[in-house]
Computed example of a mutant assay.
Amino acid sequence: MLTVQNLQAAFERVTDYWSPKVIGKVNDQLLKAAKIKGQLVWHAHDQEDELFHIVKGSMRIELEDGVVELREGDFLTIPMGVRHNPVADEECWILLIESTSTKHTGNEVTPLTRSIEEQFS
Rank of each mutant, 00 (worst) to 15 (best):
K35S: 04
Q39N: 12
K37G: 00
I116V: 13
K25L: 06
G81F: 02
A34W: 02
C92G: 06
K21V: 09
W18D: 11
L2D: 14
G38N: 02
E12I: 07
F75A: 10
G66F: 11
S99D: 12
L40Q: 10
T100F: 01
L70K: 03
P20K: 05
A34K: 01
L30E: 00
I94M: 11
Q8N: 10
E91F: 10
N85H: 03
E90H: 07
S99E: 07
L112E: 05
L70M: 10
E90F: 04
A44H: 05
I23G: 00
I36Q: 02
K103M: 12
F11S: 08
F11M: 04
S19T: 13
L7I: 14
T3E: 05
W93S: 11
T113E: 06
V67L: 14
E98N: 01
E90P: 03
D89K: 07
I97T: 14
T3N: 15
H43N: 10
E98P: 00
A33L: 01
Q8M: 06
D28C: 08
H104Y: 06
G106R: 05
V67I: 15
D28Y: 08
S58Q: 14
E117M: 13
P20G: 15
E90A: 14
F52P: 02
G73S: 07
L7N: 03
V41Y: 03
K25R: 15
K37R: 15
F11P: 04
D49S: 04
Q119D: 07
N85S: 07
E12D: 10
K35N: 08
E62S: 08
V68P: 03
T102L: 11
Y17M: 08
P20Y: 03
T100A: 15
E91I: 02
K21N: 02
V87G: 05
P20R: 00
V4Q: 14
H43W: 07
I23V: 13
V87I: 13
E98I: 09
I97E: 11
S99H: 06
T113C: 12
V68R: 11
I36K: 02
N27A: 13
Q8A: 08
S121R: 14
I23R: 00
C92R: 10
L31I: 11
T113I: 12
F52D: 09
E118S: 12
P86N: 06
H104L: 02
R60P: 00
L51G: 07
S58P: 01
Q5W: 09
K25G: 09
E69F: 06
P20H: 03
M59A: 15
D16W: 09
P111Y: 10
P111F: 08
L96H: 04
Q47S: 13
E117K: 15
E62F: 05
L63E: 01
E50V: 07
I94Y: 04
P111H: 09
M80H: 14
V41C: 13
C92Y: 07
S115V: 01
P79I: 02
I97N: 08
R13E: 10
L40P: 03
Q119N: 07
K35M: 06
V26H: 11
V109W: 11
I116F: 11
L40E: 09
L96N: 01
H53D: 00
W18N: 12
